[in-house]
Write a protein that binds this DNA or RNA. Structure first.
Length: 898
RNA sequence: GGGCGGUUAGCUCAGUUGGUUAGAGCGCAUGCCUCACAUGCAUGAGGUCACAGGUUCGAAUCCUGUAUCGCCCACCA
């Protein structure tokens, strides 16, 4: 069979993944004879398409899952998708808009039908893309956050919290997106700075009943604001009680311009006398701080905006219907006319933005549902403080704790249609004339009650709002195991929940630490009375080559599917794992993936060589028992052992990057660069076993990172040999060290030989000898001679020599170490070049020598440093002195000979 | 306004508890189609480890400060 010299990942990956699926290689079952290892996937949005962030996040998870599976754990990667309320609704609304329709035109029921259609059609796109990446999820378990069962869990949780009075309804100021026309949580409304102005506006003051000293007899005060349009909703001005400048205002009448409303004057500590003029306008219905003040001082709340943030009937006629920003300009013009603008200053305003559509948030007072977070936070604080849940990198612990300690109540109701509708019903009769926040006539239940339990009325309606998407996501680690049904007797589901929960690692980007991770810990503690996972691995953000976050709108994305198409999933995965140091951001460009592509090709060609040699030499091996080994074989195995140990430890510590590097280094720079070259001229049955053992072991070590090519190579080895290997790498055993190593003295000799070969190459390059094959002449003692003869063929190959003679005396010495001297059999030698390079080496060693000798003559060093350090330093000095001496002798001898 | 992280070769980054001759990949230079791979092989050049102090026999590593870039949080209107 011909194996092409270039690796083509595409057919291989498709074929292999299909085979894995057919054989259900990723399925995990509660299995008491094994230890569980479980990761729940951060469920991608159904609207999602695979981007580099997903690729990074999911590759990390797959590596861990595959590693543990090979280590013999019952390894479960739980997959699924998130219904992503606002995002998905927005997509379908846009589709509707193409038909010139609004959701209201077709009504809630029809609109939901369209949403389900869309989800059925496109919702699993990302799942298919994850398969292309090689994800080894147990796909039969795939969950969706709006599955019937999952919805039951959501309802159950809502009801439980309501009954514990941890959910309440209240009329508060919340973050409102005027474009999505829904409430948002604080986390969904991140603050960003925008350029704006600070306007100083004159509010007329009329003297009130009291006496005002003449020096204060001015006819206006000045307030500073960045949002002049909100003044139409002003109901007070506020000053700091300790601010002596404005005491007179308490007895004065402040008039709101344009509206001509009289404003209350209140005193509040929250007012900073230093800022602006020290007088602040108070708009309780449109500013969170003013809202607080309004509550405190019992002010009037005037909502001046419609849901889409156009001005409503509560403003003077001229402004009704204007958009908020349009209104700002209009108001400024009017104020200008009335000469009521004192001045304006450029000002950076920090404003909330909708995390879905980036529209500036409009604070809005409206009845919403909230979760009381403080009680929930207690457990979540404790487990992290006690390191029951740990973060990696550790620094996130502080960030997490800071957030949880300062937690605010969570606004969970959304005025959209796609999502879990609140399990809340209202009895119209009981609600008659009742205050909005009252619980009277409110029925919280999983199903609509036929009649009101209080009055028997049957005019019952369900709350129109749906729940925040994250209100379902926070249940993910246990709701995916059919909680609460699994608690209520379903045997198989319960076994799974008991077995796999708590899960082991959660892998995520820092962006959703608060949204999701923190809340999952709370939900875990509240509903399972247990942490949901014990480790949180937080990886970096994927950025472009300039360090800018990749986003579709900026057009700087690198599509992982393009990379898979061009270079293969293995190349993509390997490159990402190599680049993504723990926790730091990843800067990407197309060419960064060449590392992965090239490495795949290297693996491919190394395999070709192995198979070729076996075929050529007609060597049959049926087992990999390592025996009759020469030192150089042991040398290779020893380095492989070291690689196994380091890679295993790194993977256990979640340092995938480190493990990947170690395996890569061994494979390329030890196995390919040295061992494969060595066996070319020494192909024996024993070496074949070392060769295949090393190759198979490398494939195992690399399999978590590069599942496809390693599997393909594994299969090829099986096909081309009579080895009894495991059925598939997915379920193969993780390698263990062979504990075979050369004796220390032999190892030292081998290392010296490797160094010698490097020196020969170096000298050849320095002398500009190009590809010329030289005659190698070596002077060595009898013991060393035996050693050199035994290894002669590969010494010649690796030093590109055509012959090797061991002589009692050399005509000239070009390199010398403790065991042997070397000459290259050529007539003319560019003596000048040789001496120059020799002198360079000498001067380098000289510097080190001097440093070391200064250190060793420093009594303070000898007194203070640990004995070990001093010993090491002495040994190093000995070594360096010898090297230096040899080099100097070499130069002298060379000069004499020439 | 608080908090966190980065600053090491032209670029992207490693560097474990202070004890080396500071590493890798890419790029660069030079030479090689050496019967697995030019997606390759060999050799090499390139760094006062951001800056300034301090601790120490010894600092890229610990402490303090400065600069600079980035991120997160926060009701200064």
């Amino acid at each position: 069979m011909e194996i092409p010299s270039k690796y083509d990942p595409k057919p291989v990956e498709e074929k292999i993944y299909q085979k894995w699926l057919n054989e259900k290689k990723f399925a995990a079952r509660a299995n008491p004879s094994k230890r569980p290892f479980c990761i729940v996937i951060p469920p991608p949005n159904v609207t999602g398409i695979l981007h580099m962030g997903h690729a990074l996040n999911n590759t990390i998870q797959d590596v861990l899952i595959r590693f543990r599976r090979m280590q013999g754990y019952e390894s479960l990667w739980m997959p699924g998708t998130d219904h992503a309320g606002i995002a998905t609704q927005n997509v379908v609304e846009k589709e509707l808009a193409k038909e010139r329709l609004k959701k209201e035109d077709i009504g809630r029921e029809k609109f939901l039908e369209r949403l389900w259609d869309w989800t059925d059609k496109h919702g699993s796109t990302i799942i298919e893309q994850l398969k292309k990446l090689g994800a080894s999820c147990d796909w039969d378990r795939t969950r969706f956050t709006m599955d019937k069962e999952y919805s039951e869990a959501v309802k159950e949780v809502f009801i439980k919290l309501y009954e514990k009075e941890l959910i309440y309804r209240g009329n508060y100021i919340i973050n409102w997106c005027p474009r999505c026309e829904t409430a948002l949580s604080d986390e969904e409304s991140p603050h960003k700075e925008i350029d704006g102005w600070l306007y100083y506006i004159r509010y007329p003051v009329e003297q009130g009943g009291g006496k005002i000293p003449s020096k204060f007899r001015i006819n206006y005060i000045i307030v500073a604001t960045t949002r002049p349009e909100t003044m139409l909703g002003d109901t007070a001005v506020a000053i700091n009680p300790r601010d002596t400048r404005y005491q007179y205002l308490k007895n004065a009448k402040v008039i709101l311009p344009i509206v001509e409303r009289e404003l209350k004057v209140v005193e509040d500590e929250a007012v900073d006398p230093e800022f602006g003029t020290g007088v602040v306008k108070v708009t309780p219905a449109h500013d969170p701080a003013d809202f607080q003040m309004g509550k405190k001082h019992n002010l009037e709340f005037i909502n001046i905006m419609n849901p889409d943030s156009t001005l409503n009937q509560n403003v003077p006629e001229d402004f009704i219907g204007m958009d908020r920003f349009e209104a700002r300009q209009a108001i400024l013009e009017v104020l200008q006319e009335k000469k009521l603008i004192e001045k304006r200053e450029p000002y950076r305003i920090s404003a909330g933005h909708c995390y879905r559509c980036h529209t500036i948030i409009e604070p809005r007072v409206s009845p919403q549902w909230f979760v009381r977070m403080r009680p929930l936070a207690q457990g979540a604080i404790k487990v992290v403080e006690e390191d029951k849940v740990t973060f990696l990198p550790q620094r996130w612990k502080k960030v997490y704790l800071n957030w949880v300690h300062n937690i605010q109540d969570w606004c969970i109701s959304r005025q959209i249609w796609w999502g879990h509708r609140l399990p809340v019903y209202y009895c119209k009769d009981c609600r008659e004339g009742v205050e909005e926040e009252s619980k009277k006539g409110v029925i919280v239940a999983k199903e609509k009650p036929p009649t009101c339990p209080a009055c028997g009325s049957s005019t019952i309606t369900q709350d129109n709002d749906v729940l925040d998407t994250w209100f379902s996501s926070w249940l993910w680690p246990f709701a995916t195991f059919h909680w609460p049904q699994s608690e209520h007797g379903e045997e198989k589901a319960k076994a799974d929940l008991d077995y796999f929960y708590p899960t082991n690692v959660l892998v995520t980007a820092s962006e959703i630490l608060f949204f999701w991770v923190a809340r999952m810990i709370m939900a875990g503690m509240e509903f399972m009375n247990q942490i949901p996972f014990d480790k949180v691995l937080i990886h970096g953000t994927v950025r472009d080559a300039k360090g800018i976050k990749m986003s579709k709108s900026l057009g700087n994305i690198i599509d992982p599917l393009d990379i898979i198409e061009k270079f293969g999933a293995d190349a993509l995965r390997f490159s990402l794992m190599l680049l993504a140091a723990s926790g730091s951001d990843v800067y990407l460009s197309d060419e960064k993936f060449l590392v992965g592509r090239n490495f795949c090709n290297k693996i491919w060609n190394a395999t070709r060589l192995c198979l070729l040699k076996i075929k050529e030499n007609k060597i049959k091996v049926s087992d990999l028992e390592l025996k009759e080994l020469e030192d150089i074989d042991k040398w290779c195995l020893q380095q492989l052992d070291e690689t196994i140990n380091q890679a295993t430890k790194s993977l256990q510590d979640l340092s995938i990057n480190d493990a990947t590097k170690k395996a890569y280094d061994f494979f390329w720079h030890t196995f390919c660069d040295w061992y494969l070259e060595i066996i070319k001229d020494n192909f024996t049955a024993a070496k074949t076993k070392v060769l295949l053992h090393s190759l198979v072991t490398s494939m195992k070590l690399l399999h978590p990172v590069m599942p496809f090519i390693t599997q393909e190579v594994f299969t090829l080895i099986k096909e081309h040999s009579s080895l009894k290997l495991e059925d598939s790498l997915v379920s193969a055993s993780w390698p263990k060290p062979s504990n075979i190593a050369p004796k220390e003295s032999e190892a030292a000799k081998l290392n010296l030989l490797v160094e010698t070969i490097r020196q020969i190459r170096n000298i050849k390059t320095d002398l500009g000898l190009g590809a010329k094959k030289l005659h190698l002449e070596i002077k060595a003692g009898p013991k060393a001679e035996e050693f050199l003869r035994a290894n002669a063929t590969w010494i010649m190959r690796l030093s590109a020599s055509q012959s090797l003679d061991i002589k009692p005396k050399l005509a000239r010495t070009l390199y010398k170490n403790a065991l042997w001297e070397i000459n290259l059999g050529i007539e003319d030698i560019d003596a000048e070049s040789f001496v120059t390079s020799l002198e360079k080496k000498i001067s380098k060693i000289q510097t080190i020598f001097e440093k070391a000798s200064v250190r060793l003559t420093d009594q303070r060093f000898l007194d203070n440093a640990s004995p070990d350090t001093v010993e090491n330093e002495k040994a190093k000095f000995e070594e360096i002195s010898l090297q230096l001496k040899r080099l100097q002798e070499l130069r002298k001898a060379f000069m004499d000979q020439k």
